[in-house]
């Protein structure tokens, strides 16, 4: 019992994974921003009042789903443009770490509204994004990689101490929620693949990489023409997905499991053109790479600061000499 209480106390007093979730927030914001940017030229055709899915039909769908969308509030062109551009700006703010949790909540509302406007465009990455963004609200995901104005901290100080004391347990719950969601995604995806004939035969990569929608001309054929790469890639995918939770539960294996997941999704992003999906998965994998991400950021910061320090050191002897000369003259 004592051990249980001490574990509860540790989890409710020490924040875990602050750097990781900050990275998740920044990268998810970027993916959201790029969703707006990549569809910008086609926005009227895809989401506007006269889009390929008529506005009235879209409103009826939203009502039958028991959902909501800001785009359903009015069929005017001005309203559509306003909501779309506000959504884009909010996504940029989330990426840069401006606006705090209120901005993140607005980003979810705008993104959900856009997803509802044309659901056929969505993939697993968008699905994960709308589940994980509310989980991020509980975390201290603005502590790093953000241009904080300090307003949130000042407002926070006005809250009663009871409320403020809940920040750490809520943060840790948010981190665990994202990590568990990722485990669910991988295990379910792996279990379904195990049942598929092509995955069992070790030929799934051969088939999927030839589909024009997912083919990378000049690259995909190098993979699907190589029997070894096809079989090894197919089996490794299934094994990795099914055993991912085991990899992250064992602390020593955690960075390796996360690094493998990131490599796997970089390959999907490049070879299959699913950049948004791949980066969303990578963003959520960052919760498992808190220490490693922290070290990497420190290393990059050191590299960036080193030339400045060197330049300062080189200047300093000269600067001192001038001061000494001036002092001697004044004497």
């Amino acid at each position: 019992m004592k051990k249980f209480i001490s574990t509860v106390d540790r989890w409710s007093s020490v924040p875990f994974g602050v750097v990781g979730v900050s990275g998740t927030r920044a990268l998810l914001g970027f993916v959201g921003l790029m969703f707006y940017v990549s569809q910008y030229a086609d926005r009227d055709y895809l989401f506007g009042p006269d889009a390929v899915l008529p506005w009235r039909e879209f409103v009826a769908q939203v009502h039958s789903n028991g959902s909501f969308s800001l785009y359903a509030w009015s069929s005017s062109e001005a309203w559509f443009q306003l909501v779309f551009h506000l959504g884009l700006i909010t996504a940029l703010m989330v990426t840069l770490g401006i606006g705090g949790r209120a901005g993140l909540a607005c980003h979810w509302v705008f993104l959900w509204s856009l997803y509802e406007r044309q659901p056929v465009l969505l993939d697993g990455g968008d699905n994960l994004a709308y589940l994980v963004l509310p989980m991020l609200l509980a975390t201290r995901c603005y502590d790093r990689f953000s241009f904080s104005s300090g307003r949130a901290k000042r407002l926070g100080r006005r809250l009663p101490t009871q409320v403020r004391s809940l920040a750490t347990p809520l943060h840790n719950l948010g981190v665990v929620a994202i990590a568990s969601q990722m485990c669910l995604v991988y295990v379910v995806s792996g279990l379904y693949k195990v049942q598929g004939q092509m995955w069992q035969d070790g030929t799934a990569l051969f088939y999927v990489l030839r589909v024009p929608e997912f083919a990378f001309p000049g690259v995909s054929n190098l993979i699907y023409h190589n029997d070894f790469l096809v079989v090894a890639g197919t089996y490794m995918t299934v094994i990795f997905l099914v055993y991912f939770p085991l990899g992250v539960l064992v602390p020593a294996l955690r960075p390796w499991a996360a690094a493998m997941s990131i490599s796997f999704h970089v390959a999907i992003g490049l070879c299959m053109g699913l950049t948004g999906f791949a980066l969303t998965m990578i963003a959520c994998d960052l919760v498992f790479l808190d220490k490693e991400l922290g070290k990497a950021v420190s290393a990059v910061a050191n590299l960036a600061v080193r030339p400045i320090r060197r330049a300062r050191n080189e200047k300093e002897p000269g600067g001192r000499a001038v001061e000494v000369t001036l002092a001697e003259e004044s004497v």
């Binding site: 995604v185 598929g196 088939y207 999927v208 589909v211």
Partner: peptide
Amino acid sequence: LFAPDPLS
């Protein structure tokens, strides 16, 4: 996600 069988 591309299961049980991927688009072929």
